[in-house]
C-alpha cells in the first residue's frame, strides 16, 4: 500500500531525512519510534503533503501512485489521514461543520452522493461513542477551548468518520492521561481492519501497550536504524535509545 524508497528530505539546506525505506501493507500497524528531533514528525508531514519540506531524493508510492505529485487535499481524499500532534483551533467554525465538509469532500471524490444532514448526524453520533466524546463538542468551534485529551479524541473521531486507508498518528499519546490514552487507543483498535494500515509515531512505548504494532522501526538522525517486531519496543523501553545510537551500524 505504501512504499517509501530512499526518501531524502530537507528543510531549507538542512537534511532531515536521509534515505528512508519503508514498506507498509494493508492491515498492518507500524510503529515509528525515536528520540526528539530524529525526523519522525517530518516523515508524517511529508506523507501528508505539508509545504516547506523539500524532497531531494527518493519516492513515495501510495497504492502505486506517485504520492509526491498529489496536492495535500487530494492525498486526504485518496485516503491518507494525519492525526495531528497539535490540532489547530479554528475560531467560529463549528466542529460539526468541518466534519461534514471533510466527509463530503471525500465522498465526492469517491463518486458517492453527499450525506444528508440526518444520515451524517446519525453516523457521527455512532462514532462519538467509539471515542467517548461528548456530543456538545460537535457544536463548539473546532478545537477551541478543548482540553488536550478532547483534541486528540476529536482527531480520532475524524479518523473514524473519514475511514482512511492509511492513518498516520503523530504523537497521539502525548499529553494524554492514562484514561484518555485508553479510550483513544480503544478507538484506534476499533478502526483496525484488513484494508487499513496504521502508522503510529511515538516517543514512548506506553502507547504500544494498548495498540499492538506488527512492526517497530527506530528512527534516529534521519535514518531507520533498526526494524523489528513488537519486542523491539520493549527493549527500547528498557534500555533507551542510547544503546541503538551507539550501536548504529551493527545488524540487529
Amino acid at each position: 500500500m505504501l512504499e517509501i524508497r530512499n526518501l531524502n528530505v530537507s528543510i531549507g539546506d538542512k537534511p532531515i531525512l536521509k534515505g528512508i525505506d519503508l514498506h507498509v501493507k494493508p492491515g498492518e500497524i507500524h510503529a515509528i519510534m525515536g528520540p526528539n528531533g530524529s525526523g519522525k514528525s517530518t516523515l508524517a508531514q511529508v506523507l501528508a503533503g505539508r509545504e516547506g519540506y523539500t524532497v531531494t531524493e527518493g519516492e513515495i508510492l501510495f497504492e502505486n501512485k506517485n504520492l509526491l505529485e498529489l496536492a495535500p487535499e487530494l492525498r486526504a481524499r485518496e485516503g491518507i489521514f494525519l492525526a495531528f500532534q497539535y490540532p489547530v483551533e479554528i475560531p467560529g467554525v463549528a466542529n460539526i461543520y468541518l466534519l461534514k465538509a471533510a466527509i463530503n469532500a471525500r465522498r465526492k471524490h469517491q463518486g458517492l452522493p453527499e450525506l444528508d444532514a440526518m444520515d451524517f448526524l446519525e453516523l457521527t453520533k455512532e462514532k462519538l461513542r467509539l471515542v467517548g466524546m461528548d456530543e456538545a463538542l460537535l457544536y463548539r468551534p473546532v478545537n477551541e477551548g478543548f482540553s488536550g485529551g478532547e483534541k486528540k479524541r476529536n482527531e480520532i473521531l475524524q479518523m473514524a468518520l473519514l475511514e482512511p486507508k492509511l492513518a498516520l498518528l503523530d504523537e497521539t499519546d502525548s499529553g494524554l492521561d492514562i484514561d484518555a490514552l485508553k479510550t483513544v487507543s480503544e478507538g484506534v483498535n476499533a478502526l483496525k481492519n484488513p484494508d487499513r494500515a496504521i502508522i503510529l509515531i511515538t516517543h514512548y512505548q506506553r502507547l504500544l501497550d494498548y495498540i499492538h504494532p506488527d512492526r517497530v522501526h527506530v528512527l534516529a538522525n534521519g535514518r531507520i536504524i533498526r526494524s523489528g517486531g513488537p519486542e523491539l519496543a520493549l527493549t527500547l523501553e528498557e534500555r533507551g535509545y542510547g544503546w541503538l545510537e551507539t550501536a548504529e551500524g551493527i545488524p540487529a
Binding site: 487535499e73 486526504a76 489521514f81 494525519l82 495531528f84 467560529g92 467554525v93 465538509a101 473519514l162
Partner: peptide, 27 residues
C-alpha cells in the same frame, strides 16, 4: 498556514478552507 493545512488534510480545497476560516471569523 496551520489552519489551512489542517483543513486541507481533511480533504478541503485551499479556497474552501480559506472561505471556511474567514466565515468562522465573521460568524
Amino acid at each position: 498556514e496551520d489552519q489551512l493545512f489542517y483543513c486541507m488534510q481533511r480533504g478541503l480545497s485551499a479556497e474552501d478552507a480559506v472561505s471556511m476560516i474567514v466565515n468562522g471569523f465573521c460568524r
